[in-house]
Design a protein around this nucleic acid. Structure first.
Length: 276
DNA sequence: CCCGATTCCTGTAGGC
DNA sequence: TGCCTACAGGAATCGG
């Protein structure tokens, strides 16, 4: 499931194949993503050079040489893969970008998304913001994100702290897996009301979020079923997960069996002994 | 504003 | 072995 580390891993994997290169050809086989691929998408990209590849939250932002930007989201099952030009498309291969370098080197960037929860949008030059990015909270690695920030924002909030942490308006990038992992590292029970979590606990939580995300990026993300990096390889953080998907198994810290419950319509895992 | 529930989608795992 | 159902979940949206 692409959360921040998976999107960042994808960005890093794509970069050498797209930066400074020209989009020679665009093929859209299926426009039916979470939001339809806009009419004129292929036309707008064709011939353009990619000058930067950034990430904002779980979105990839490709900056083009005419000021237009491509906004891509992997949804739940999306992959952006670098494959051999000419490789025949398979099921759910919705979009191809054929990249060409000045020296003639070519690479095919292929968007694959069985569940079609992702997005591939055009963000035209001149539009300063984008509606999908407008309301987003701070990046977890930014100065704006801190324990103090979480503490202040959470006062009076009755929602579970895990739901609070997964809210993109609070902080971006922590999805279901990394929210559970961060709360375990910080020793906070996921069901606690966000407003009842203490300042010291939020200081630990902010540090834990950064730590977990950074480690996951180093491992190339977490592959449970759908996710693969741009090179098609699995990420290795799954072996470092301490609670996610480990119901009934011993806590790696204290051996107490890990518990599971649904919180905010999402499976949530925690250690009843380490997390209070 | 806040919060919980619903919706989109398809592959896969688990139960019988 | 095969069928059926539940589940996976990012994020927009809606109702209270």
């Amino acid at each position: 499931m692409p959360e921040l580390p998976e999107v960042e891993t994808t960005r890093r994997g794509l970069a050498p194949h797209i930066l400074g290169r020209r989009i020679a050809e665009v093929i859209v086989r299926d426009t039916r993503l979470r939001q339809p691929v806009p009419a004129g998408f292929a036309q707008a990209l064709r011939g353009r050079r990619v000058v930067d590849a950034q990430r904002r939250a779980k979105y990839l932002v490709l900056q083009l040489d005419n000021g237009d930007r491509v906004l891509a989201h992997l949804g739940m099952s999306g992959r952006l893969l670098v494959v051999e030009p000419g490789l025949a498309p398979r099921a759910h291969d919705h979009i191809d970008l054929l990249m060409e370098a000045d020296d003639g080197a070519r690479a095919l960037i292929r968007y694959h998304d069985p569940r079609r929860f992702g997005a591939m949008l055009l963000w035209p030059a001149g539009e300063a913001g984008h509606p999908l990015l407008d309301h987003l909270g701070p990046e977890p690695f930014s100065e704006a994100f801190s324990g103090e920030y979480l503490y202040a924002l959470s006062r009076g909030r009755k929602a579970a702290v895990k739901v609070f942490l997964m809210d993109g308006r609070v902080v971006v990038g922590a999805g279901n897996i990394y929210a559970s992992e961060s709360l375990h590292r910080a020793g906070i029970r996921p069901s606690r009301a966000a407003g009842s979590v203490t300042r010291p606990a939020y200081l630990r939580l902010a540090a834990a979020v950064r730590e977990v995300l950074a480690e996951a990026i180093e491992q190339g993300g977490t592959t449970l079923r759908d996710y693969a990096g741009a090179d098609g390889q699995a990420g290795y953080f799954a072996q470092d997960l301490r609670v996610y998907g480990r119901e009934g198994e011993p806590c790696r810290a204290c051996a107490t069996p890990i518990r599971q419950a649904v919180l905010g319509q999402r499976a949530t895992y925690w250690c009843p002994s380490c997390q209070r």
